[in-house]
Design a protein around this nucleic acid. Structure first.
Lengths: 343, 343
DNA sequence: CCGACCTGCCAAACCGATTTACCGGGTCGC
DNA sequence: GCGACCCGGTAAATCGGTTTGGCAGGTCGG
């Protein structure tokens, strides 16, 4: 085989015009073709291994079946991969392809890359953040369908983010279910949605379970293992210490692990720990393996792609884009860091 | 602004033909245009914010300035992100774009996705593995320029992989430099290049430093934290234990950490540990932070993309593809797990 | 028997760029 | 003064599909 077969080759072989081949292969609504001819076209296409040239099609239809994935950071955590994977599954069902781009938080680079994407007639853009925050969609994207992924925005755009509040609730519930009545959380002092949502849910659920407010402590520190370790040290180094500890994320949980170790506290016998994020390589390697609230990256990626296709379809029929928002709940991954409180 | 400006719009505004606009904007060799006209064209293009429609260009030139990134797995480690990022930097310089695809080790899916990419007239493909192994390039890619990334192949294709042997050497050197004379390595029993290369380099460097063979032990286990922990337990639970331990990867190093802890051995005072991979979230969160040999993902991604463009250029001028191979050395990341041997 | 309408199919225009082939006018060499 | 050649530019073909607008020929109703 030498060159890819074109629609003309198929037409010749089936003894029909390219028009008819196009109609048959695309099932173009509003066109009629006899069963006999349809069969001949399909046979010819199969024999030649024909598949339409996506570039030519895109030029005519102004639809490229490709969507851009514009992320701020792609190389530091597996998060990007999960968002991409979740989105890709949906895009794939639409015979589409994902154009991935990384901006490294560089606005100028972002503008250039978006221009590059736009010049390729992409159908829409997934605008993704690697950690849940508030973003503004760049002006250069104003005309394109855009869904904001793993973030929220004040622009009039659809977005999907993790349900931080529910995550906090779930973390509390895990500890409560195990029997803990003295709880603490090491929170994050940064001004981001997760930093307020998680403790809010945590506190609410503890209160709902009848745990008195003075028995649940929340402290806020800068989100590093070191700061978490310090905070844990202060929290744990006293007789009336909490027996159930929720950490803002897995990394900080590792800090808490270290402090517990220094204090001679065994996990989960003396102290139960719940993390957040489910950084699998971290939490599975921890000793003991860390019970944690997973971030729903796959699901968010898929949701965003689905929504994007809805908006693309709406635009194709001239309707206004239906803007929607979703907060997706992550699952609790039970491992080995939660047990009954010491008696 | 409503619609994107086309080359015709620019032509009208500059008072010339589309042909001339094309010549000027692309600096087409072998064409002549007066300075005056060139200036007018450039001005018109700038005023209209013109940038060529990449789809139309691709159709005519059969060159899409896009390259496919076909990976087997994208969501479990940050490796994929680093490979993509490294490649992207180079692709970007060529005004290109990366079409990312994930095959999940599914051959049928892979075939479908490659077909999808090919129908988009991609210029070439980066065929990437997430861990260094031997791959065979799928037959459907036979006609396209392909560079194998983070893997090697017996096909007549270019590839780039980590230099495992050098990594083993470097790990040994770190321990030797710190003064260690009794060394051990916990290796990987899987039949993959890294599993033989790293210990080979490690042993060679130890021998070169004059350490007698009986003072350096290598054991091979299945590459999990648990198996590594068991192996470390056996290795370390004796008076003539090694003082410098090299682990096949960071995860296994965490297993060794756990065993050392159980045995009451402090790191790095009683035992020095060197890992491999530089899984940053893991090694930085470890206590103490892990000294490790990094895998050169960024560099490999960039190398592969560079090489791919060389092959694309060669093909464009009708020359045969220059097949090349590279093994790239990773850097040692010094953190806190290596110290002097106990006296 | 006539016109309306349906069926099955196709020719040609079109999408927006690049590339080929050519053209008028000036210059140069002899 | 004439042919060759260069300069600056353009018209039209082209890439491979989809879409528009129609065209034969048959059927049906009145």
């Amino acid at each position: 085989m030498s060159e890819r077969a074109s629609i003309r080759d198929v037409a010749v072989r089936a003894g029909v015009s390219p028009t008819t081949v196009s109609h048959v292969l695309n099932n173009t609504p509003g066109t009629r073709t006899s069963e006999k001819t349809r069969a001949r076209v399909h046979a010819a296409a199969a024999e030649l291994g024909y598949s339409a040239n996506a570039v030519a099609r895109a030029l005519r239809t102004r639809r490229s079946d490709s969507v851009g994935f514009v992320g701020d950071e792609i190389a530091t955590t597996p998060f990007a991969g999960k968002l991409i994977l979740g989105a890709q599954e949906v895009v794939r069902q639409h015979d589409g392809v994902l154009l991935v781009t990384n901006t490294s938080y560089d606005a100028e680079l972002e503008t250039r890359e978006i221009r590059e994407l736009l010049s390729r007639d992409i159908d829409g853009v997934l605008y993704a953040a690697m950690y849940h925050r508030v973003v503004t969609v760049p002006a250069s994207l104003h005309a394109a369908p855009v869904v904001v992924l793993n973030a929220r925005t004040n622009d009039d755009r659809s977005w999907v983010s993790p349900d931080e509040y529910a995550g906090g609730e779930d973390a509390a519930q895990v500890l409560i279910d195990a029997g803990h009545r003295r709880l603490a959380m090491i929170g994050n002092s940064d001004p981001i949605p997760a930093a307020s949502g998680r403790p809010a849910g945590f506190l609410a659920r503890a209160a709902a379970a009848g745990i008195p407010a003075e028995d649940v402590t929340v402290v806020y520190v800068s989100p590093t293992a070191g700061h978490a370790a310090e905070a844990a040290m202060r929290l744990l180094d006293r007789p009336d210490r909490p027996t159930g500890l929720f950490c803002f994320n897995d990394l900080m949980a590792m800090g808490a692990y270290n402090s517990a170790r220094r204090l001679g506290l065994r996990i989960p016998d003396d102290l139960s720990v719940v993390g957040f994020d489910d950084l699998a390589i971290l939490s599975a390697a921890a000793d003991p393996a860390l019970t944690t609230v997973a971030l729903p990256h796959l699901e968010m990626g898929a949701w965003a792609a689905e929504q994007l296709y809805v908006e693309i379809a709406a635009r194709a029929t001239g309707q206004p884009s239906p803007v929607r928002h979703a907060e997706l709940r992550g699952e609790v991954v039970h491992r080995a860091s939660v047990g009954s409180p010491p008696r």
